[in-house]
Amino acid sequence: MHKLAAASRHLVRFELNGKAVEGLAEPRTLLTDFIRHEIGATGTHVGCEHGVCGACTIQIDGVPARACLTLAVQVDGAKLRTVEGLAPEQGRLSIIQESFRKHHALQCGFCTAGILMSLDAFLKANPDADEEALRENLSGHICRCTGYAPIVAAALEAAEKLREIRNA
């Protein structure tokens, strides 16, 4: 049994977007607060802190999850991926990101990081997903600006492009 005492801060280490990072967290520190304010990766946003809105969705060991429903100390040793890790290089966008830009699938951009992290994992696991399956997967995200229609269009086009690349 490994005990981390309530009132102290403890070393937490994990891999973030392929790089080793570490910082100090109380047992109660939420992963959202930890990656944003301790690590400085502010691309992941906090929308509700009760797991409904999806804005804070990141990939933990390859699968999308709510960072706000996770304690920082729980991910010690894990591999995390956030929106900062999606673009292939500085100045370029991934296929999904490019498709979002083309279709105006974001306005304020606050919910976008979470949606991208879900979609990235979903299209990797389900390259042939149809619109219904896409909608169902992304229904774990609230967007207040776009009305979703442009996001659906962008996601469908990105899926098509990814299929083309895979088949080429």
């Binding site: 944003r36 990766a41 979002f100 105006h104 951009g109």
Partner: peptide, 21 residues
């Protein structure tokens, strides 16, 4: 014209500058 938005590249890569950032 529906030109690409200048805001988007930053927002899509996590480089936004919201208050709490």
């Amino acid at each position: 014209r529906s030109v690409a938005r200048v805001e988007d590249a930053g927002l899509l890569t996590g480089q936004g500058r919201f208050l709490d950032d």
